[in-house]
Design a protein around this nucleic acid. Structure first.
Lengths: 233, 233
DNA sequence: TTCCCCAAGTGTAAAAAATACACTAAGTTT
DNA sequence: AAACTTAGTGTATTTTTTACACTTGGGGAA
């Protein structure tokens, strides 16, 4: 009960790792922000300090909306990051330094994860973001703070969810072909899958139902369109 | 960039859900603490505010050690809890109120999970804990704050790890019988398992090796003792 | 109109994993 | 010597996973 002096209330933020699927590649939503000297810019995950009267989940929704104008995304908390030096260069960000009540204090962040169809969301920069954009995962720049690490861990978690078939359909169009699901899985998991075996498994899970429509305008045999089976979740 | 006023730096704590296995029941480590009016007591998970120069993982180790004198436990972060009202009755805890730099501010907690052999640890209360004790999960009291919820979520996570065979052996004695492992699994998962099938699976995983010793002093056929196969992890 | 291109769509055999199930063995106690 | 208690073992069945190659039906080009 004696060492009551070392505690300094930290700043707490949320960071959102929003993966976007464009039917071809996996992307992640990044922002570009100016550094204090006005010359350099840096890239980062969308994130900001929480405010006092909101829960963490609500903070994640709000922050994502404020910075990128993206809302209605299912964000899932996956880990808190709290290394004391994880935001050592925060003083380079004048907007943040002036924002913080305890500018000298560290920043602990709670990271959230989401997966969306890129087409459904047109990010628009605001708040302190100079620019918001979808970045292909294959060519990731170096990110601010520990955001590269946060992104890596988010990707691990995302893949884990796919392997256990707990997610994935939400980022397909309303009607989709089995080929599209397979491609999605291949992109997320980063490996090829056998077509017949994949179909067997997906159809057995009964999460999708065939409609009686087919693709049109494709230069090959048109595929049957499926839709999500909303009852069966 | 205009609403820069609502942020108040929260207090950040860690809470440790330490499950203890006594070869028969699953227990959890709780503390008893006095409330401000000195009459009432309450039960809670061991936890405390973090200090400024330590990471979250280190904070969890330190806090557990300070409050319960238990150290060397593998604590795994599993979720942050940040509902703005989750610690509404914190003013009842004078030790905490006086400790906090921002007594008016909310408390966000990062929850950790561990699983140990009860026999290996003799908790001893210190710091603000009046008492530290192992409580059987079957007869849990009502806990402070949202600690019942945190405990529930920890248990879900623990079971998930067992189902995927990612954990469990660490809380057996150095040498153990297959029956003991099975009993452990049955206690954690809360259901009976088929003996032959369970043995097949465990042995196939090659995580344990038979020694050439047997149990002694039991009033039935003595079982072969196994030990952890440390190479194979 | 024919031919070509392209992904869609389909089945089967083999191997591996999961499940269900019941008796004998080896100590201890009485 | 008998009784009690948990250890220890095998097989048949079902389910799941994996590997693998050809035909189909549209659109576009010649």
């Amino acid at each position: 009960m004696t060492n009551q002096v070392k505690n300094v209330n930290p700043n707490v933020s949320v960071d959102c790792v929003v993966f976007g699927f464009d039917n071809d590649k996996l992307n992640v939503l990044l922002i570009e922000q100016k550094m204090a000297n006005k010359e350099k810019v840096q890239f980062a995950l969308p994130g900001d300090l929480i405010v006092d009267d909101e829960g963490l989940d609500a903070a994640a929704d709000r922050v994502l909306e404020e910075i990128t104008h993206i809302s209605g995304v299912f964000l899932r908390q996956f880990k808190a990051f709290g290394d004391p030096n994880r935001v050592s260069d925060i003083k380079d960000l004048d907007w943040l330094a002036s924002y913080r009540q305890n500018p000298q204090a560290r920043v602990i962040t709670v990271a959230y994860l989401a997966l969306v169809k890129m087409d459904d969301f047109q990010p628009e920069a605001s708040s302190f973001a100079e620019r918001v954009f979808w970045q292909e995962l294959q060519s990731l720049p170096s990110l601010a703070f520990d955001h590269n690490q946060i992104l890596e861990e988010a990707l691990d978690r995302l893949r884990d969810d796919f392997i256990n078939h707990r997610t994935g359909f939400e980022l397909l169009p309303e009607r989709f072909t089995l080929g599209q699901i397979q491609k999605l899985y291949e992109i997320i998991l980063g490996k090829e899958l056998d077509k017949r075996n994949f179909r067997k498994k997906i159809l057995k899970e009964k999460l999708v139902t065939a409609t009686n429509e087919k693709q049109t305008g494709v230069l090959h045999k048109p595929a049957i369109l499926y839709e999500l089976n909303h009852d069966n979740i």
